[in-house]
C-alpha cells in the first residue's frame, strides 16, 4: 500500500507526463476534427473514423509509458532512491505497472471518448480505453529494459509506425493479426495480440529488473 502511494505520487509529480497527456489529447481532438470535416465534405478519409485518430495518437501513450519508466534512470539516479526505499523488486515492478495503469486510465478514457463519440462509435470506447492503457504499459516495459528514453522511443515508434505498416501492407500478410497494434483499428481482431504482447513485455521487464545490477 505504501509502495502504491509512493509510485502514484511519483507519477503525478512528473511534469513531462502531464504535458504528454495534454498534447496527446489535443492531437486526438484535432485529428477527430479533421476526419469529421472530411466526412462532411463528402470525401471520408477512411472507413473507421471512430478509431483512426487513435491509430496516430497512440504514439502519445507509448511516449507516456516510456517517460514514466525511463524517468527512474535519467540523471540524478532516482532508481537508487527507489530501490533503497522499496528493495523487493518483483512486487515493486507489479505495483509500478498498476500505478501507471491507474494514472493512464482516465487519460485513455478521455482520449478514446474524444475520438469515438463524435463518430458515433460509443461502443468502441471501452475497448479503445483498455487498448491505450495496455499500450502505455507496453511502452513502460520496453523503456524499463532499454532504460533510456530516446532509444526506447525510436524502437517503439519505429515498430508501430514504420515496420508495422510495412508488414501489414504486404499482400497476404499474416503478420497483421499478430502485431501489438492491430487492435487500434480492429479491436475484436487484435485484442488477444495486444494483451499477449503487453504481458510478455512486462514479464521480460520484470525479469531483467530483478536480475540486473541497478
Amino acid at each position: 500500500m505504501n509502495t502504491a502511494r509512493a509510485e502514484l505520487r511519483k507519477l503525478l509529480t512528473l511534469p513531462s507526463l502531464r504535458l504528454t497527456a495534454l498534447l496527446t489529447w489535443t492531437a486526438t481532438l484535432l485529428l477527430t476534427y479533421a476526419y469529421a470535416a472530411a466526412e462532411s465534405r463528402g470525401e471520408p478519409l477512411g472507413d473507421a473514423a471512430a478509431l483512426a485518430p487513435l491509430g496516430y495518437t497512440q504514439a502519445g501513450f507509448l511516449v507516456l509509458g516510456v517517460l514514466a519508466a525511463a524517468s527512474e534512470y535519467q540523471d540524478g539516479g532516482q532508481i537508487h532512491t527507489t530501490l533503497l526505499a522499496m528493495p523487493r523488486r518483483l512486487p515493486l515492478q507489479a505495483v509500478k505497472a498498476l500505478a501507471l495503469g491507474a494514472v493512464t486510465l482516465p487519460v485513455a478514457a478521455a482520449t478514446a471518448a474524444t475520438s469515438t463519440l463524435p463518430a458515433n462509435g460509443a461502443t468502441w470506447m471501452p475497448a479503445a480505453t483498455a487498448y491505450l492503457t495496455l499500450t502505455t504499459l507496453l511502452g513502460a516495459a520496453v523503456a524499463g529494459v532499454v532504460r533510456r528514453a530516446v532509444p526506447a522511443v525510436i524502437l517503439l515508434l519505429g515498430m508501430y509506425f514504420i515496420a508495422g505498416p510495412l508488414l501489414r501492407a504486404r499482400p497476404g500478410s499474416i503478420a497483421a493479426a499478430y502485431l501489438p497494434d492491430t487492435a487500434a483499428l480492429n479491436p475484436s481482431r487484435g485484442a488477444a495480440a495486444t494483451i499477449i504482447w503487453t504481458l510478455s513485455a512486462l514479464t521480460l521487464a520484470a525479469l531483467t529488473f530483478h536480475r540486473r545490477d541497478a
Partner: peptide, 8 residues
C-alpha cells in the same frame, strides 16, 4: 522525444 514522435 517531441520531434521524434512528430516526425516518425
Amino acid at each position: 522525444i517531441v520531434p521524434l514522435a512528430l516526425l516518425i
